[in-house]
Design a protein around this nucleic acid. Sequence first.
DNA 1: AATCCGACACTAT
DNA 2: ATAGTGTCGGATT
Length: 924
Amino acid sequence: MGSMNAVEIEEAISVLAERPFDPTEFPYAFLQAFGNKETTLSRLRAGNTNKSDVGGVLQRNNIHLAVAPPGEVSAKLSQLRESPATTKQKAKFILATDGETLEAEDLASGEPLACAWDELPDHFGFFLPLAGITTVRQIRENAFDIRATSKLNKLYVALLKENPAWGSDERRPDMNHFMARLIFSFFAEDTGIFAESRLFTDTVSRMSAADSSNTHEVIGTLFRAMNTKHADRENAGIPRWAASFPYVNGGLFSDKVDVPRFSRTARSYLLQVGSLDWKQINPDIFGSMIQAVADDEERGALGMHYTSVPNILKVLNPLFLDDLRAKLEEAGDNSRTLLNLRKRIARIRVFDPACGSGNFLVIAYKEMRAIEHEINRRRGQPGRPSEIPPTNFRGIELRGFAAEIARLALIIAEFQCDELYRGQKDAIQEFLPLDAENWITCGNALRLDWLAICPRTGTEVKLLGDDLFNTPLDQPEIDFENAGGETYICGNPPYKGRNKKDSTQKGDLAAVAGPRTSKHRTMDYVAGWLLKLADYISAVPGTAGAFVATNSVCQGEQVPVIWPLVYERGVEIFFAHLSFTWSNLASHNAGVTVVVIGLAANGTRSKCLYSGTSMRLVASIGPYLVPNTTVIVKATTTPLGPQKKMYLGSMAKDGGNLVMSLKAARDLVQNHGVNSAFVRQFFGSEEVIYGKPRACLWIDDSHADSALKNAAIAEIVERVRRFRRQSDAPSTRAFASTPHRFVQLSAASGTRAIIVPRVSSENRPYLPVSYFAAGPVIGDKCYAIYDAPLWNMALVASRLHWVWVGTVCVRLEMRFSYSNTLGWNTFPVPALTDQNMADLTRCAEDILLAREVHYPATIADLYDLETMPDNLREAHERNDEVLERIYIGRRFRNDTERLERLFAMYTQMTANEKRSSTARRMRG
DNA sequence: AATCCGACACTAT
DNA sequence: ATAGTGTCGGATT
């Protein structure tokens, strides 16, 4: 099976449906459209793999399809359904067609499909499981949006090819604006906004020459007409054939913008896009798909950056929609209460300072219209004009095309809601001309003053440009009539981790956070939005906001950097969704793990913690998204308690040269005369967890000269030198002069070591930890405690430590990512008596002995939740029992209690630390 | 001089 | 192809 994405499949099916029906070739062409390779098809043709018993084509585990004699499609489908081969070969679909009609069935769900042959492209989504695309239901329900995206993309590319200058930075906005006008025109001609159906497409088709030479002039004339009031058209020289186009204006048609020249291909794509049924557009989904069209880098993943509505509602519902719905519920049929609620809704502003193509805004708008409609229905006023002004939905977006689409998406959403709740006639009547205001700002949200875009509400004075905390570089001059009311800020801003920001993004973050902390470089890019949100909330009382963010803003080193700055504004977390994966339509869903964080002024909202579908009320939510504690844990280089010092292993930075497989090392010694004294076992995380060491070259400076006399060693070392010299990082280049050794020899070593892998699976009930005698090289994917009493290992292996590290250290997606400074040194351990240490040492020994029994089982084997041996489980239970008795004199009831105790102890121990260091300073 | 992170990056199945 | 689970080394303190 190929790896075509939905957009590519749509294209292939469209091509198939446009060609004359070929009964012999159809089954193969169909399979090809879903990504089957030529070799697969030729084997089916030859009959080797064709299992059909009704004269069709049956691909195992896939589809049984057959061509029917004219008019006998239903009969053929029955035949396919009843065929024993269909069941035996586990076909997922059956399909029959005679080239006039087509019938099919999804055998798993029983869902039928019947359509005319040439409508097949409208239903391609039905068959997507054939291409391995099964997970996302939305894609099937939004076949139109994918088709439109695919065709617009072709048009966009063809236009850029014909007008290379339009791809430049200066002209790109014109190009984007042009595309937005086109999309609007297609929508308008299919929804009755234009006087006749297909008016735009037909006019272009009729008036422009087939050789495409004057297509741009025709379109330009139509756009000009739409920007000219009827009374002025004669003076403006608008020709008669453009007369039936309405006056649209709004921001959309007001500026004078050229039309790009069309090639023949571009013209034909234009007409194809126009022939789609734009009534079916879903502005939220379409927008997030189409925005990739104008993005050179993203175009490869066209249509794949769709964000699901349920995920967006994870932000909007707890932020304010749930409350509105609850108020609606309470109001019942009380006309007066309902009226007040309607007035309240009409004054709510929703502001997304990272709005992309506007899907948060569109969904918020639609949900609010639904509530308003229900109010009107209960008050006996169905079909009443909406009081919710689209100008209350504001956004900032950096990418020009996305910003254009966001504006358009809101316009379309408004029309569709009017049509749904008030009927087509009213919707059309009041639709034009469009409002002139542009309430989506194209710009850099971290550089703009949010108060200028979404000013304080109520009767206060205008606050344009009054930014309390920063001096913006660029201020849009927006002065909306201010309705008064609540403001809700929402969105899914971009994430860029510590090492992934480009220089512009670093600058943006420095502008926001630089004045307040020198550590802004460690913050994720998304933190800039969180800080500006906190600023806005403190400046405009009553505001609440929620963003989707990478979960690492609530973990590890970022917590002590970001959250004090939020709290310092008098702002707190009032709801949060714990980590979940943010999925899109990309086939290899490089998922990112996110949280949703809701912020509001201290004490203004009750606190809700969401996890999956469950929700619980809590007293407070801390920056680790843990209930009832707002403690922040800071990395420290020395242990807080009695635990011994833990060191990071040695870092290779060798371009994969010094470290090698055992086999390669053996080959060096046996066949290339390498002295075995220079070869040592090497352990990283994986090597520890799976008990499979690798090898590395380990050459002391004093032996470097003699080692390099060996040709094989010299060659390896030369490759290391080259790799380091070519590195972008100065910290690596600096070690190009000592290529025979690791860049960093761990600060310590010893005869025995307790080893802790850095990254490990979240599916184990205890952190992996191992114990080695001297000899192997410990790589930087491990930490080590050298020559320490074994009770240190008892701590690492405890459930208490699992809970602590899982909370305060960062995670890679959901994996544990261990840290000495953040997780080990900060781990609150009470003072230990000699007896305590002896007991814990015994527990650690028992754990090692329990593992020993199962030799050669690895840590991965032993700590698999399903198959963990009883004796090992018992050894850990005893370890936890002994340790927890030291903490509180009994076992903890659960992990929540463990965490609460640990945070309480941490607070106490760090307070003592502060006091004693102050005392030391005073004495000194 | 030491370490934290990854709108990830692999491998195994 | 996707479920499962940690490499690797740049950028930062």
